[in-house]
Simulated assay, not measured.
Amino acid sequence: MPGFRDFNFKLLVIEKLMYEDRTLTPAFSIDELLRARGIRHTDVYVHENGLEFTVLDESRAYFEALEIGEELLATVDVLLVDGGNRVYYHCSPVWDGEDELFDVASLDDLDLLPNLRLVSGAQDCGIGVAFDEKLLAARGIASD
């Protein structure tokens, strides 16, 4: 199984495959995981434990361990860089988008996506700071 070097880049891929295409299953739900532990209100749990500005340990462990096969990675042709991505809720349920929590720091993982043709939204929000237009263009990847 291919391994990701940048956790936040992997989250963009998970957003595409798990929450948009629904080909990476089952979809992870932080609400369901916490309910199974007897926690009824995710936002209350986050606030009471001072976890507002972090990725929850439960989510990080799940997504870091999640293996994505080459066949699925080959289906990724578009990545959406958007503060409203559902995967971010499942990592940090009360994240307000006002910090660098989900900034992609490295594009080393582009090699894992042989059919990527577009990175959408990278120019519109801060979490796509690593998405250099020239680097993407040199790989045949458009950005908007």
Rank of each mutant, 00 (worst) to 15 (best):
E15F: 00
D108M: 12
I141V: 07
E100P: 04
G126S: 12
Y88Q: 07
D82R: 02
A105W: 10
V46L: 02
D96N: 14
A36E: 15
D57W: 06
T25M: 14
T75L: 13
Y19R: 01
E100W: 12
T75E: 15
F28M: 02
V44D: 08
M1F: 15
F63E: 10
F53R: 14
L80H: 15
R35H: 13
L101R: 09
G97W: 04
G69F: 07
L118E: 10
E98S: 11
E100N: 09
G83H: 11
L136Q: 00
E100L: 08
F53E: 15
V119T: 06
R35D: 12
I127K: 14
F53Q: 14
V78H: 10
A122S: 07
D108E: 13
L136G: 07
R40D: 15
F7L: 07
S120T: 12
S106E: 00
Q123T: 13
E133F: 13
V94K: 01
D111E: 13
N115L: 12
L72F: 04
L12E: 06
A36Q: 13
D6Q: 03
K10V: 01
I68W: 08
F131Q: 02
L24F: 06
L51G: 03
R35I: 09
G69D: 09
F131C: 05
N85I: 03
V81Y: 09
Q123R: 09
Y62H: 11
L118C: 00
D124E: 14
F7E: 10
F9H: 01
D96L: 13
L110Y: 01
D43P: 07
A74Y: 06
W95I: 05
D31V: 09
P93Q: 08
L34T: 00
R5C: 15
A137G: 11
D108F: 11
D99I: 07
V55S: 05
D132C: 02
R60F: 14
V104W: 03
L24T: 04
A65D: 14
L66F: 02
R35E: 12
G50M: 01
A27M: 14
L51T: 06
L11N: 08
D57N: 09
E98R: 12
I39E: 04
N8F: 03
S143V: 11
V94E: 05
E64G: 01
T42C: 11
L12P: 04
V87N: 00
T23C: 14
D21V: 13
I141C: 02
L66R: 11
Y62I: 01
Y88M: 05
